[in-house]
Computed example of a mutant assay.
Amino acid sequence: MYRMVPTSDIVLTQLRKGVVEYCVLACLRSGPAYGLELAERLGSDSSLLTSEGTLYPLLSRVRQQGWVTTTQVPSAVGPPRRYYEITDEGRAALETFLATWSRFTTDVRTTLES
Rank of each mutant, 00 (worst) to 15 (best):
Y2G: 11
I86Y: 00
G66T: 03
P80C: 06
L59E: 03
D88H: 01
L48R: 11
M1S: 12
L28A: 12
L48D: 07
Q14E: 11
T54S: 15
G35W: 03
Q72P: 04
D88I: 00
E89Y: 09
T69H: 05
S8F: 15
A92F: 03
I86W: 00
E21I: 04
T111M: 13
Y2F: 05
T70F: 02
C27D: 10
G18L: 10
L42G: 04
C23G: 07
R91A: 09
P6Q: 07
V73R: 15
Y84T: 02
L55K: 06
G18S: 14
G90H: 04
G35V: 03
A92M: 03
R61A: 01
G35P: 03
D88T: 14
R103N: 03
P80E: 10
V5R: 15
L12S: 09
G43Y: 04
S30N: 10
T7W: 05
C23Q: 09
P32V: 00
T13E: 13
V24G: 01
M4V: 14
Q14M: 13
Y34W: 15
Y83N: 04
V11Q: 14
Y22R: 06
S44G: 04
L28D: 12
L28P: 05
P74L: 04
T69E: 11
Q14H: 14
L25H: 09
K17D: 07
C23S: 09
G18C: 11
G43K: 07
D107V: 09
A26F: 13
T13R: 15
E40N: 09
W101F: 10
G53L: 10
R81L: 15
Y56T: 12
E89F: 01
D107C: 07
S102C: 00
T50A: 05
C23D: 12
G18T: 09
S8Y: 14
E21W: 06
T71M: 06
W101S: 05
T96P: 06
E40T: 10
G18V: 10
W67N: 06
A92L: 08
R63K: 10
G53D: 12
S114Q: 15
T69W: 02
P57C: 09
T70I: 10
C23V: 07
P79K: 07
G43T: 08
P57M: 01
R81F: 08
L28E: 11
R91Y: 06
V77R: 13
A99K: 13
P80S: 14
E21H: 12
T70C: 11
L49F: 08
T110Q: 15
T69M: 02
A33L: 13
E113C: 05
R91Q: 11
R91V: 01
T106C: 01
D107M: 08
R41F: 05
